[in-house]
Design a protein around this nucleic acid. Structure first.
Lengths: 218, 218
DNA sequence: TGTCAATTGTCAGCGGCTGTCATTAGCCTC
DNA sequence: GAGGCTAATGACAGCCGCTGACAATTGACA
C-alpha cells in the first residue's frame, strides 16, 4: 500500500474536486471563488494552485479521465476494422466502463450537471473544445498508424477524426441541453447523430425529417 | 458624414487593434500586457476595456469580420444547391472578398501571423474554437431553413455542419503550421481537405496515401 | 530519535477586469 | 460664440486569478 503522505495528497485532491464541483453546480462557475473552494476543504489557496494549474483545470479533472479511457480503448481495439467502424464501435464498447470510472470519484448526476455547466459557461466551453482538439490529434495519429499512412502527408485521418468529433460534439450539445440527463440518453444521442453522418453528406436530402431513432445499420 | 466624435472613436478602436496585433506578433500574446497596448495608443486602461470586453476580444476583432462575411455569403446564395455544395461553393466564392476586407484594417501578412499566434496560444485557441462553434450554430440554422427541416428534430444540419467545420479546422491547422502563410495556400489546404471528406468516410482506404492535390470531382 | 525531503502556509505582488466618480470634450440651441 | 447637455475619458480603489519566495510543518527512513 502507498504511504500516508501519498494518501493524504490524493485525499486533498479529491476533496478539492468534489468541493469545486458542488460549488460550481450550486452557484455557477464564474460566481465561485477559489477562496471558497479552499475554504470548504480548509487548505490554503496556494495549495490549490499546486494541485491544479488553474481554476479551469479542476473543472476538467474528470473529463480528462474520460478521454483517456476512450483513447486507451481505441488503441487496444483488434485490427481489421475500418476507421469509421473503429471510432464507432469503441464508442459502443466504453460507455459503461467510463460511467463506472466516474462514479468512483463523484456521483454520476453531479458529473452530468457539471457537464451542463461546462456547456453553458463560455470560458469552460472554450477550454473543453481545446481539449477535444487535443484528443483529435491523438485519435488521428492512432488511425494513421493503424492504416499505415503518414498523418502529415495524408489528410484522411485528420479529416475523418475531425468529422467524427464534430458530430460527437453536436450530439453532446443536443443531449446536454435536453431534459434527460442520463448516460443512456447521451449514448442514444451520440449514436443517432453518428448514424446521420452518411445521410447528411449525401447529395439530396429527402424532404421528410430523419427519424429521431434512426434504423440500425445492417 | 459622421461627426468628429464618431470618427475619433473609430480611430482609437482601430489604433488599439493595430497596436495589439503588432505587440502580439512581436512578443507573443501572454507576454503582452494591456498596459503596453494602451501605452502605445496613449489611452487609459479603462478605455481599452470599454472598447473590448477582454484582452482576448481584441485579438478576435478581425476573425469576427471573417465569419460574418462567410455567413452572409451563405445566406445570399441562390437556392438549388445541396447542403454540401452550398458550404463548399460559398467557400470558393468568398476567398478574395474576405482578404480584401481584412486588408482595409491591417496588412494581410500581419493578420496571417496573428492566426499563427492564435493557433499556438492555448488560451486563444480555446476562444477561437468557441467562436467557431457559435458559427456552426448559425450555419446549421441556415442549412435547415434552406432544406425546410426542423433543426431541433432533424440532426442532419448540425451533423453536416459539424463535420464540415471540423474538416475546415483541421485544414487551417495544417496550413497555419506550414511555411506558406498565404491566402492561396490556405485556400488550397481547405479545399483539398474538404475533398477528402468522402474518401475518409469510405469503408476501405486504399493503401497508398491520397495525393496532396486530390483529383477534381466529376 | 534525528535528519532529510516533501508538502504546506504565509506573504507580497502582478495582471486582467470592474465599479465609481470627477473631468474633459464633442454636440446642439439660442 | 456662449451656454448647457451628454457622451467619452481618466483616475482611483478594489476584487480575483495566479505566481515566486521563504519559512514552517510533517511524513519518511536510517
Amino acid at each position: 500500500m502507498t504511504g500516508l503522505r501519498e494518501r493524504k495528497k490524493q485525499h486533498t485532491r479529491e476533496s478539492l474536486v468534489r468541493a469545486a464541483y458542488e460549488l460550481f453546480v450550486e452557484k455557477g462557475y464564474d460566481a465561485t471563488t477559489v477562496d471558497e473552494i479552499v475554504a470548504a476543504v480548509d487548505v490554503s489557496q496556494r495549495t490549490f494552485f499546486r494541485y491544479f494549474a488553474s481554476k479551469e483545470e479542476v473543472a476538467f479533472s474528470l473529463q480528462a479521465l474520460v478521454t483517456e479511457r476512450y483513447l486507451e480503448a481505441v488503441r487496444s481495439r483488434p485490427p481489421g476494422e475500418s476507421p469509421v467502424e473503429l471510432l464507432r464501435s469503441t464508442l459502443d464498447e466504453t460507455w459503461e466502463s467510463i460511467g463506472e470510472a466516474i462514479e468512483e470519484v463523484v456521483p454520476l448526476t453531479l458529473y452530468m450537471r457539471m457537464w451542463q455547466i461546462i456547456e453553458t459557461t463560455p470560458a469552460l466551453l472554450a477550454v473543453q473544445l481545446r481539449h477535444a482538439a487535443g484528443m483529435e490529434e491523438q485519435l488521428a495519429a492512432e488511425v494513421a498508424r493503424r492504416e499505415g499512412v503518414d498523418p502529415d502527408a495524408d489528410p484522411r485521418p485528420r479529416v475523418l477524426v475531425a468529422a467524427f468529433s464534430g458530430v460527437m460534439r453536436a450530439a453532446f450539445r443536443c443531449w446536454s441541453s435536453g431534459e434527460d440527463i442520463t448516460v443512456e440518453a447521451a449514448q442514444q444521442a451520440v449514436e443517432s447523430y453518428v448514424d446521420q453522418l452518411g445521410p447528411a453528406l449525401s447529395r439530396d436530402w429527402e424532404r421528410h425529417p430523419a427519424p429521431r431513432t434512426p434504423p440500425l445499420p445492417g
